[in-house]
């Protein structure tokens, strides 16, 4: 009994225990943490030093610190590459980035909520499970494969959808190679890929609603839709709010995989986003300083959006992401 108390004491009053005793007990935990921490330091923190090259003139085979500060006509001008980056191409990429994300949010965000509400109303368990399994499928496909599928569906001549459109005597729709249509395809394939997966979290929230609320609503004579509106939706409101805010926080970011796989040269005026812009200027054309400047701009603005979203979420009495 005494031994138990002593051990429990060690756990609870860590401060009073001598450091050597403490380490003797817990060194293994620090040993376990060593690898992940080294990983973070090398692969997440060490690259941050290369942010400096946004302010320097990049030179091949030169140490980072030996590279000269960015200069124009002999004058040191550390924001040279930021000024240089602020051209039409960059503004286009920024605009596309924000527009595509906003469209995703506007059309893609409600989709899983509606789907979850409908799944919740399904009368047959087995059927519900089958529908769920099928709806999760697109989430497991890579964007390259989804691009391949969209070629099969929407190609001007051989695509399934255009075959059907042409059968009805209409002209083929340029889903992939005309800017406005491409946006629709991009957003549509995004919804297709994520609505099922996104519904998981709402279904869990719905499962957490107190069933008595539904019984009480029934007693009051509420029908199916009025229960959905007055019980289910308020029950998952906080989940919706948190996810909405976090999505807004990510408005300046965006996945490289998706847009790079889906874009083609004919629609670059609407399809080039910051991520692909940085890739093409940096890795492809080796304009390291310029593309680092653009990337830094995106990271910093993105950081403010995320922090703002988190603060807003907490102000509203919801949980943040940390």
């Amino acid at each position: 009994m005494k031994k138990v108390a002593k051990n429990a004491g060690l756990e609870k009053t860590g401060k009073k225990v001598k450091f050597s005793v403490y380490m003797k007990r817990y060194w293994q935990l620090y040993l376990m943490l060593a690898l992940p921490i080294i990983y973070l330091l090398i692969f997440k923190y060490a690259p941050m030093r290369y942010i400096l090259i946004a302010f320097k003139d990049y030179k091949l085979n030169t140490k980072l610190l030996d590279m000269p500060w960015a200069s124009t006509a002999g004058q040191v001008d550390i924001f040279k590459y930021f000024k240089k980056a602020m051209n039409v191409d960059f503004y286009n990429a920024l605009r596309n980035n924000v527009v595509l994300n906003l469209l995703d949010l506007f059309f893609g965000f409600p989709a899983p909520i509606i789907f979850a509400l409908i799944l919740n109303e399904l009368p047959f368990k087995f059927f519900k499970k089958t529908v769920q399994t099928i709806a999760y499928m697109p989430h497991f496909l890579s964007w390259v494969i989804i691009y391949g599928l969209s070629l099969q569906l929407f190609a001007p001549t051989g695509g399934l959808v255009n075959q059907l459109i042409m059968l009805t005597g209409h002209e083929a729709v340029p889903f992939l190679n005309e800017s406005k249509h491409w946006i629709v395809t991009y957003v549509g394939m995004g919804i297709w890929q994520s609505f099922g997966w996104g519904s998981i979290i709402y279904l869990a929230a719905i499962a957490g609603i107190n069933p008595e609320l539904y019984e009480a609503a029934s007693v009051d004579g509420a029908g199916r839709f009025s229960k959905m509106w007055h019980v289910t939706l308020p029950g998952i409101k906080s989940t919706i709010v948190v996810l909405l805010i976090m999505n807004l926080g990510g408005i300046i970011g965006g996945s490289f995989d998706r847009v790079f796989a889906m874009q083609n040269n004919l629609v670059l005026d609407v399809a080039e986003t910051i991520a692909t812009f940085v890739y093409k200027n940096g890795v492809k054309q080796l304009r390291f300083s310029l593309s680092t400047a653009v990337g830094l701009f995106q990271s910093v603005v993105g950081l403010f959006f995320l922090l703002g979203a988190n603060t807003l979420s907490r102000k509203l009495g919801e949980r943040g992401i940390w």
Partner: peptide, 27 residues
């Protein structure tokens, strides 16, 4: 666990801020 807060901060920062594509490439 002593130092847990420091480690948590170290971890959280990486969720919010990424060095970027080119710095990662150069690394």
């Amino acid at each position: 666990l002593k130092g847990k807060n420091v480690i948590n901060i170290l971890i959280t920062i990486t969720m919010f801020f990424n060095a970027g594509l080119i710095p990662n490439y150069l690394l």
